[in-house]
C-alpha cells in the first residue's frame, strides 16, 4: 500500500520536472547563464589578437569608476529616474481620478491617456521629433507666438535630458493610470457617501480615504517605474543618441554603446553587473517588503 503511494508520488515528481524542463532550459540559456557569464566577463581583460584576455580581478570596475563618462551617465540616469518616476505617477493618479469621475467625453479621455502605451517607443520618438526639431519644431513655433527665440531642445546639454524625460513621462503615465483606475473601481461607493454625509470635502475624501487605499497599487507602480527608468531608452536612438556631449546618455544605452560600438565587452559587462545588483536589490524589496503588504490586503 505504502509502496504504491510512494510510487505515485515519484511519478508525479517526475512529471513535474518533465513539465518544467523546457522552460528551465530556456531560462538557464538566456537568463541564468548569461548573468553568470556577465560576472565572469567583467573580471577579465579585453582580449585582443595579440594579448589574450586574462583575469584581472576588479580592474574593470576601477577603470569604470575612473571614467568620468560613467559618472555622468549614472547621474543622468538618477536624474531621469528622479524626474520621470514621481511626475508620471502623479499624473497617472490624476488621470485615473478624472477617468473614473463622471465627466463628459470620459471614454475619449481614457483612450487618449492610454494610447501612448501601445505605440512603439521608436515610433513615438519620431512623433516627438516634430515637437523638438530646432527650425520648425512645434515647441518653437508656439514659443515664437509668445516672442520666445528658437531653442534647440535636443541639441544643447541643458535641455536634451529634459526632452527625453518629457517623452518618457508621456509614454508611461497612461500605462500607470490603468492600475490606479482598476484600484479606484474596487473602492466601495458607500465610503464616498459616508464621507459626504460627514461633510468631508472631496479633497479630504481623496487624501484621507482614497490615497491610503491606493497605497499597495502605488508601491506596485513604483517598482515598475524604477525598472522602467533602467529599461526605457529606445527613444535615445532617435532623439539624441546620448548627446550632446553625453548629456542625455543613460546607463543601458552606454552599455549598448560599449559593447556594440566601442567593442569593449568587459566594461559593458562590469556595468551590467552593477545594474543587475541594483535590480536584485529592487527584487528583494518587492518580495520582502511589498508582497507582505499586498497580502495583508
Amino acid at each position: 500500500m505504502t509502496d504504491a503511494f510512494t510510487l505515485e508520488r515519484r511519478r508525479r515528481a517526475l512529471h513535474g520536472w518533465l513539465l518544467l524542463s523546457p522552460a528551465l532550459i530556456m531560462l538557464a540559456t538566456f537568463a541564468f547563464y548569461p548573468s553568470l557569464a556577465t560576472v565572469i566577463t567583467s573580471l577579465w581583460s579585453r582580449g585582443t589578437r595579440r594579448n589574450p584576455a586574462e583575469f584581472i580581478g576588479l580592474e574593470n570596475y576601477r577603470y569604470l569608476f575612473d571614467d568620468p563618462t560613467f559618472w555622468q551617465v549614472v547621474s543622468n540616469n538618477l536624474f531621469y529616474a528622479a524626474v520621470t518616476i514621481p511626475v508620471s505617477m502623479a499624473l497617472a493618479l490624476v488621470m485615473a481620478l478624472w477617468a473614473n469621475a463622471r465627466i463628459p467625453a470620459r471614454s475619449f479621455i481614457r483612450t487618449a491617456y492610454f494610447t501612448p502605451t501601445v505605440l512603439p517607443m521608436i515610433a513615438a520618438a519620431n512623433l516627438w521629433l516634430f515637437f523638438y526639431t530646432p527650425s520648425f519644431g512645434i515647441l518653437n513655433q508656439i514659443g515664437a507666438l509668445f516672442g520666445a527665440g528658437p531653442v534647440n531642445w535636443l541639441g544643447q546639454p541643458d535641455t536634451a535630458l529634459w526632452a527625453i524625460c518629457v517623452m518618457t513621462i508621456w509614454k508611461e503615465a497612461g500605462f500607470f493610470m490603468v492600475f490606479y483606475l482598476a484600484a479606484l473601481q474596487t473602492i466601495p461607493p458607500d465610503l464616498q457617501e459616508a464621507a459626504e454625509i460627514e461633510g468631508a470635502s472631496r479633497w479630504t475624501y481623496t487624501r484621507r480615504i482614497v490615497l491610503p487605499l491606493l497605497m499597495p497599487t502605488t508601491l506596485f507602480i513604483l517598482v515598475n517605474a524604477m525598472i522602467n527608468s533602467v529599461k526605457l531608452i529606445d527613444h535615445l536612438f532617435i532623439l539624441t543618441k546620448g548627446g550632446p556631449s553625453d548629456s542625455s546618455k543613460l546607463i543601458l544605452y552606454y552599455i549598448w554603446e560599449n559593447a556594440f560600438a566601442f567593442f569593449d565587452r568587459p566594461s559593458a559587462a562590469a556595468m551590467t553587473v552593477l545594474v543587475l545588483l541594483l535590480l536584485g536589490a529592487l527584487a528583494a524589496f518587492q518580495f520582502l517588503v511589498l508582497d507582505r503588504r499586498v497580502h495583508y490586503r
Binding site: 512529471h15 538566456f30 547563464y33 548569461p34 525598472i227 565587452r265
Partner: peptide, 29 residues
C-alpha cells in the same frame, strides 16, 4: 504537481522578472 525543491525553484524563476533580457544584451549576444 508536488515535488521537493519546487518552491525554491519558483523563486529562482521569479528572479528572472528582474533580470531583464534588455540588460543582458552583452552575453545574450
Amino acid at each position: 504537481t508536488e515535488f521537493r525543491g519546487r518552491d525554491a525553484l519558483f523563486i529562482l524563476v521569479l528572479m528572472q522578472l528582474f533580470i531583464l533580457p534588455e540588460v543582458l544584451i552583452v552575453e545574450n549576444y
